[in-house]
Each structure stands twice: as C-alpha cells, then as structure tokens.
Design a protein around this nucleic acid. Structure first.
Lengths: 107, 107
DNA sequence: CACACGTGATACCTTTTGGTTTCACGTATG
DNA sequence: CATACGTGAAACCAAAAGGTATCACGTGTG
C-alpha cells in the first residue's frame, strides 16, 4: 500500500482532518471519541479517518469492538519530501534553522 | 489580504497546481506559457493560478498585455507553520537536519 | 485605425467531496 | 441467550471542484 503524495496532500487539504491530526498528536482515540469533538455525525468523522488512513497519516488498530486511531509518524514524509524538492522557500527556513541550531550549540 | 492556512493547503491539494509551482521554481512564466505544458485549456490553467494566488503561493505582475507569474517565497509559510506545530514527525527530521548541519560545520 | 493577441470573466457541465440517514454485523455484558 | 454498543458500509444529497466553450476588453502592431 504505497501512499501516493496526492493522497497525503489530499488528506491535509480539509480543516477537519487537520484538526483530527492535531487531536491525535498526543493521544490515541477511538472513532467515537474523535467524533465527540466535532459537530457532525460519527459516520462523517469515519470518512475523514479513512481519507487520513489512505494518506498514510494515521493507523487503526482493532481492540475488541473498538478501533483505536493513532498517528503514523511516517505519513508526513511524502509531503516533507515534496516541500524539500520545492526548496525555494526552504532556503530561508534552512538558514534560520541553521542559525538557531548553531546558536544553541554555542551554549 | 491575509492568506488563511486553508487557502494554502487547498492550493497544494491539486497535482496540477503542485506541478505549476515546480515549473515556476526557477523561472517566471505567463499564463499562456504555463498552459503550454498541460493538456488542458488556458482557462483551466488560469483557474489554477487564481487558486495558487489565493493561497499566497504565487504573485502576478502585469507586463503590457501579458501577466507574469512568479513564486511567492513567503507563501509556504502557513503550511510550514502548521507542520511545525504538528511537530511529531518533525523530531526525526529535525534530528537528521541538525546532524547534517553539524557535520557540515566540522569541515 | 484596424486587427491580432493575451488575458479576464462568465455560463455551463460532470465528477468529487463532505455530509446525512439507515441498516447490517461483530463484540461485550446483563 | 438477549441485547446494548461500537463500528462498517451503502444509498443518497447538496455543494464544491475541475474542466470546457465563449465573449468581452485592454494592449501591441501592421
């Protein structure tokens, strides 16, 4: 199941899905628990979770009659890779980052 | 005209638009020149350029009867900011980046 | 000035997307 | 075993997205 860059970018394109990712950043949640935080049906949230899964952003593990969703740390890689390849803006960011790191190393 | 993160993510969600950004990475192009590279009408490409502009990814400057499109380096900032705030995967990337920079500094 | 050229804008069409409702199914639990 | 619970899946709907064709308009150019 190779995750295409397109699936990854699509997963990030919806604000609800980005919120779900943020929500899952520190904790694992069942679909029902995720749905509690949104003003939409569980079914709608489920669909978003499927898109996130197709994009490689989350993993789902069954536990009894529940499904536990957690972030897939590797999922962001295709996006990062594209941004790196794009690399125009990257120069500035890299420069700032390099400086920050060097400053920190001086301590 | 504040660019919402949503507009930025939306701009990146379409493969044609990402291709356009890549195409604009090194050169400035008129809409007609951009359109030459795709199997779709100029009007369709124009729409993509509008979305990219709304997302803050490109700038358009008039030159006679032409419009010259170029990348806006600052456009990627909202995306980068979100990814940084998301920061789970970031750890690995940052670690690798830090190491690469430190290695280079030793030379 | 007449006219070709590059673009902007609009109407229109089809497909995708985000959402709902409803029902079937496996899993706990009284 | 009966039943409540969490989920999966399908049918359906409205709105958004991606595309086309077409026309209007400013800008060069013969």
């Amino acid at each position: 199941m190779t995750v295409t860059p397109q699936a990854a970018f699509r997963a990030l394109a919806d604000p609800t899905r980005r919120d779900i990712l943020m929500m899952l950043r520190g904790q694992e949640l069942t679909i029902a628990q995720v749905a509690e935080n949104f003003d939409m049906t569980r079914a709608a949230v489920k669909k978003h979770l499927v898109v996130l899964r197709d994009g490689g952003m989350i993993r789902t593990r069954p536990s009894g009659r529940e499904r536990i969703n957690s972030i897939d740390p590797a999922g962001m890689a295709p996006v990062l890779d594209w941004l790196t390849a794009f690399d125009l803006f990257w120069d500035d960011r890299l420069a700032a980052l390099r400086q920050a790191i060097e400053e920190e190393d001086k301590k």
